[in-house]
């Protein structure tokens, strides 16, 4: 149970003198849902960008399944099985819902450089794509362009696209941000159901979602790890309350 799937050693990122992430030692255990929380500007998203190699760390190492991935390119990290979502909903706006999911499924063919072949070869993925679309409750808009969907449904589509890669590890950046109440419940249930045989690291502001889903929580403030533990431990920590609420005497 306590096998580490993803770990960082002294992960540090400086932007022109400003230290966004400082000496973060993160340890995510296989099969858990791990939350990264903290006030705005704490370095959560920067952490995500470092882990998925969208940013190059100034110092430190990232180890995934015992392998040092610090020097890899973002596409390589994705191919190893760490797939991320984005804070702003990342869909392909002028592709349909089905096409969005299919782009991810298409990755299984390996590299798609076969420009001489008809895209009908992709129809083999339709069944699986429709299933994924149904799982996030988008069956009624399969052929609608993603740009026309309301915000919450775009996020749902993004999650379906991410799941299409069947990644070993999911990095979700605020999956429920900006969603209506019912959407939050639906997405939380979805995250729970897909966590069955994979590991999830998520940034989340909705603490009730964190409480219900996450076994382990790491709190970041000003680029540093403040504390780590389960929800009870973390929520009773006075330092966390201060960092979060700005009220040490609450």
């Amino acid at each position: 149970m306590s096998e580490t799937i993803l770990a960082t050693e002294n992960l540090t990122k400086e932007f022109a003198g400003f230290v966004a992430v400082a000496n973060v030692n993160l340890r995510v255990e296989r099969g858990t849902i791990h939350a990264l929380i903290g006030p705005n500007g704490a370095g959560k998203t920067t952490c995500f960008n470092l882990l998925t190699k969208f940013l190059q760390p100034t110092q430190g190492r990232i180890v995934f399944k015992g392998r040092d991935i610090t020097a890899l390119a973002p596409a390589d990290v994705a191919q190893l099985g760490i797939v991320r979502s984005f804070q702003i909903s990342a869909v392909f706006p002028h592709l349909t819902v089905l096409e969005n999911v299919r782009i991810a499924l298409q990755r299984r063919r390996g590299a798609s450089f076969d420009f001489w072949r008809s895209k009908r070869v992709l129809d083999q993925f339709n069944e699986r794509a429709l299933k994924l679309v149904a799982d996030v409750g988008l069956s009624d808009v399969v052929h609608v362009a993603a740009v026309e969907l309301p915000y919450g449904r775009k996020r749902a589509l993004e999650i379906a696209t991410t799941l299409a890669l069947d990644p070993e590890m999911l990095l979700l950046d605020e999956p429920t941000a900006g969603m209506g109440h019912e959407d939050v419940a639906r997405i939380a249930a979805l995250i729970k159901s897909v966590s069955a045989n994979r590991t999830i690291l998520m940034v989340e502001h909705n603490l009730s979602v964190v409480e219900n889903l996450c076994q382990r929580i790491t709190v970041l403030t000003r680029g540093r790890v403040l504390t780590e533990g389960d929800y009870q431990t973390v929520s009773n920590n006075p330092e966390v309350r201060e960092a979060y609420m700005g009220t040490g005497h609450a």
Binding site: F54, P74, S85, F92, S118
Partner: peptide, 27 residues
């Protein structure tokens, strides 16, 4: 044919959102 090939689908995805295409593992 190129536009309507599996390769063309990836091109359109890159046009629409390159960062997302990278995060799905496309170089």
């Amino acid at each position: 044919r190129i536009i309507n090939s599996p390769f063309g689908e990836v091109l359109k995805a890159i046009r629409e959102n390159e960062q997302r295409a990278i995060s799905l593992g496309y170089k």
